[in-house]
Amino acid sequence: MNAQTTQKDTTEKVDEAVTGVTNWWNNPDTHEMFIERPLKILLILVVALILSWLARGIIRRATRHGIERTPLLSTAAEDTPQYRAQEARRQQRMKTLGNVGRSVAAIVIWTWAALAVLDQLGVNVAPLIASAGVVGVAIGFGAQSLVKDFFSGMFILIENQFGVGDTIQVGDVVGDVEEMSLRITTIRDIDGALWHVRNGDIDLVGNHSARFSTARLQIPVSLMANPDKVSRVIEDAATAACQDPEVRDLVMGTPQMLGPSEFNPTYVSFRLAVQTMPGEQWTVARHMNHRILAALHQENVVLTPMDSVLVQNMENNG
């Protein structure tokens, strides 16, 4: 009798346990907790991965298309140094924009994925979003300069004001742009110093590498020199200098003699100008100054007041 009772109690307990497990498994909350939510979270992560992959692919394809797309020019035009310099600058700008686009897309996609996962875990994301808005406003007021830097950097890239490799002037700093980000522009000046300039502080910038530059020369000679002879010697020497292998590929036009531009009690200054490759005006000017000075000495052009005295003495003694 006791054995039968014990067996019956055991059977009832097993039945109760099975019934409890069955009821727990059939409970909609259990299905939602262990099946629906994990599947939804997995689906969210898969969708985020797919969107991130698609965004990177689209941006990469658009960047590559932008780099490979070239204006319809003749073969001769494409072989010029001017075209190659501008093309390299354009390609660098497209790569920078592509990197920024991929970063922005990743931030947006994974922020959405994180909020969606938290929502599936039962976390009320509405207060988080509201708090993020409040924190964003607080950060906006507390870090206005940082926000200004980012927006300024974005517009510098979009408007193509300058790019990596360009020679620019920001305030008193003149140098080559070595690196650009949305917040900082890094400039290497002529003395080798590396300047880190916040984009929000760039109110006025001069780009010496946009399309072309101009080499302007001021050649001082004595007031006793023949102006017609001086103009001819300077122009001929400058034209010959532009054909030298050292600077031939850096010059975009023929030198223009602008004539006397400044009178002084002891000398008169002749001005000469020539278009050069972007940022190469100083190299061309130094080479032309060397050739012009040698030509003036060769033609016995009077350069200083002391030369004038010597010439007069020679004429008087002659």
Rank of each mutant, 00 (worst) to 15 (best):
Gln4Glu: 13
Gln4Ser: 13
Lys8Val: 00
Asp9Phe: 03
Thr10His: 14
Thr11Lys: 02
Glu12Trp: 02
Val14Lys: 06
Glu16Leu: 14
Glu16Asp: 15
Val18Glu: 07
Gly20Asp: 01
Asn23Leu: 14
Asn23Val: 13
Trp24Lys: 11
Trp25Asp: 09
Pro28Tyr: 01
Thr30Tyr: 05
Thr30Asn: 04
His31Ile: 12
Ile35Asp: 04
Glu36Phe: 10
Leu42Thr: 13
Leu43Val: 12
Leu49Glu: 12
Leu49Ile: 14
Leu49Pro: 10
Ser52His: 09
Leu54Pro: 00
Arg56Gly: 11
Gly57Ile: 02
Gly57Trp: 05
Arg60Gln: 08
Gly66His: 02
Pro71Trp: 08
Leu72His: 11
Ala76Leu: 09
Ala77Pro: 07
Asp79Trp: 09
Thr80Cys: 09
Gln86Pro: 07
Gln86Ile: 08
Ala88Gly: 00
Arg93Phe: 07
Lys95Asn: 05
Thr96Arg: 00
Thr96Trp: 05
Gly98Ala: 03
Asn99Asp: 13
Val104Gly: 12
Ala106Lys: 11
Val108Ile: 15
Ile109Gln: 07
Trp112Ile: 13
Leu118Ser: 03
Asp119Thr: 11
Gln120Asn: 08
Gln120Trp: 06
Gly122His: 07
Asn124Ile: 06
Asn124Lys: 03
Asn124Arg: 01
Val125Glu: 08
Ala126Phe: 10
Ala130Ser: 09
Ser131Val: 01
Ala132Gly: 12
Gly133Asp: 03
Val137Phe: 06
Val137Lys: 01
Ile139Pro: 10
Ala143Lys: 13
Ser145His: 08
Asp149Phe: 04
Phe151Lys: 08
Gly153Ile: 13
Met154Tyr: 09
Ile156Lys: 04
Ile156Arg: 05
Ile156Asn: 06
Glu159Cys: 08
Phe162Lys: 01
Val164Tyr: 07
Asp166Ser: 00
Ile168Glu: 03
Gly171Ile: 03
Asp172Asn: 05
Val173His: 00
Gly175Glu: 05
Ala193Arg: 11
Val197Phe: 04
Arg198Ile: 08
Arg198Trp: 01
Asp201Arg: 06
Asn207Trp: 03
His208Leu: 15
Ser209Pro: 04
Phe212Ala: 14
Leu217Pro: 04
Asp228Leu: 13
Lys229His: 09
Arg232Glu: 12
Ile234Leu: 05
Ala237Glu: 08
Ala238His: 02
Thr239Glu: 15
Thr239Pro: 03
Thr239Lys: 09
Glu246Ala: 07
Leu250Met: 09
Met252Glu: 13
Gly253Lys: 06
Pro255Ala: 00
Gln256Gly: 09
Glu262Met: 12
Phe270Leu: 04
Arg271Met: 11
Arg271Leu: 12
Leu272Lys: 01
Met277Asn: 00
Gly279Ile: 02
Gly279Asp: 01
Gln281Cys: 04
Val284Ile: 05
Ala285Met: 00
Arg286Tyr: 07
Asn289Glu: 08
His290Leu: 13
Ile292Asn: 01
Leu293Val: 11
Val301Thr: 07
Val302Arg: 13
Val302Gly: 13
Pro305Glu: 04
Leu310Val: 13
Leu310Ile: 14
Val311Asp: 14
Gln312Val: 11
Glu315Arg: 12
